[in-house]
Nucleic acid binder design. Structure first.
Lengths: 236, 236
DNA sequence: TGTATAATATTGTATATACAAGTTAGTGAG
DNA sequence: CTCACTAACTTGTATATACAATATTATACA
């Protein structure tokens, strides 16, 4: 059972829900701290914290003496989205397919135990999959999954559904950290991706959370000549 | 005359200065809230706020009961932010320096004209700069700038201020598009970055807007072994 | 009617205080 | 020696209170 939601978070969620649902649009006035104090029966400090964090996250802007308003545009830049490789492949007009090289249980190494906040040796699910577009490999996925967060992980047929699609459903994504690097593949990796070992690859490491639990840690490797990451940033 | 610095900001600055100066390294323990309370003669709430904001900005990590520690690597907040390479270098505890290889006018090729929404042959500013940390090249910047958006661009001394710092001031950033790829450097690029031509590089192409005008188009090249891009994604 | 001042509303910072939960080290008992 | 308990320390959340600064509105006076 999860802990009760902190009050400042409930206030944040309420305002964000209103923005997301279109009840509050860019430029609209957001309730003041004192109004939130009354509405939510919290202290002004709690309301201030909720609003301050939303401001830090780019959703709202605040002016002393004036008030608090929904920010223009979407201030929070679109981070690297967690999208399904199948979707990306199809968006290129290619047909996605997958080859599951490994799918089973493993024991958490010290590093993974630390990353998952589990004990060393704790059971994890592990999958290794090559994703292709029109039969040409485009992504080598190596992923460890927390069984506590996603108990039915290994029951899925990842030749037909991507891990990402399944995880997005089974373990609602709260947050993800990404690290992007340019690397050379190992000989084994190069072979699996059907490229030379001298081909630069984009390596994305992703750690995703569901609730307050690390759900999955993945390393995604893309041939440099086959993959490009695009993102957009917007400022208020 | 500037307003006195808020106390929570002074505490933040002090810790960030220590990290930037290398006095605190990744994994090192940061003073606890109660220690900061004594050192800075502030309330615990004020110390908590300072640490909480630094955590939100990715510089530190915190564990209840355990303590506060400098984050591993630099967790860049949110999207691929448009940040100054000087700032990034300094956050690594290194000293930034720059070598301007080219700074002058050019005529817009068909491709650049299209990207800037200008006529082919229209004047553009062009700079090529190698940025280094502790004397070791880390970024090769090749940038075209729209003179209509940034008329004084070439008056700046980019040996001492980064193009990004200047652009952020002279042409308030509204929006930026990023493309990230893994590539091999050309022989010339490899030479400028002091790496082998077989070293994979992270190539970031950035198009930034001020108002409704494209201000700048840059290609930034980083040696794979020297640079890692970190981003964070949050869903509600 | 126009202007100045006071009152009100809003954000911004800071403190003291309190309770809750997690971690670790030390001590005492078996 | 081992285990359990306690104390000390740490982070996490919440409240009441206070003062400061900014912006707007209401009121009073000319």
């Amino acid at each position: 059972m999860s802990a009760p939601l902190p009050r400042y978070q409930a206030v944040k969620n309420h305002i964000m829900d209103q923005i997301a649902a279109g009840q509050l649009s860019a430029g609209d006035r957001v309730p003041s701290e004192n109004e939130l104090t009354r509405t939510f029966e919290v202290s002004r400090m709690t309301a201030n914290r909720a609003l301050r964090e939303l401001m830090g996250e780019g959703f709202i802007v605040r002016h002393a003496g004036l008030g608090t308003f929904v920010a223009e545009g979407r201030v929070r830049g679109e981070a690297i989205a967690v999208t399904s490789i199948a979707r990306e492949v199809e968006a290129r007009g290619e047909t996605w397919s997958a080859s599951v090289l490994a799918a089973g249980e493993m024991r958490a190494s010290a590093k993974l135990a630390e990353a998952f906040k589990l004990d060393v040796g704790a059971p994890l699910f592990h999958v290794t999959i090559v994703h292709s577009g029109d039969g040409v490999p485009i992504e080598l996925e190596d992923r460890a999954v927390n069984p506590e967060a996603v108990p039915e992980m290994l029951s899925q047929d990842f030749n037909h559904v991507t891990t990402t699609d399944y995880l997005l459903k089974a373990a609602p994504l709260l947050r993800a950290d990404h690290s992007v690097k340019a690397v050379l593949p190992t000989v084994a990796e190069a072979k699996l991706l059907g490229i030379s070992a001298q081909e630069p690859c984009l390596a994305i490491e992703r750690k995703s959370w569901t609730g307050d639990r690390v759900a999955s840690i993945a390393r995604l490797l893309y041939p440099g000549h086959r993959y490009e990451l695009k993102t957009r940033f917007e400022n208020k």
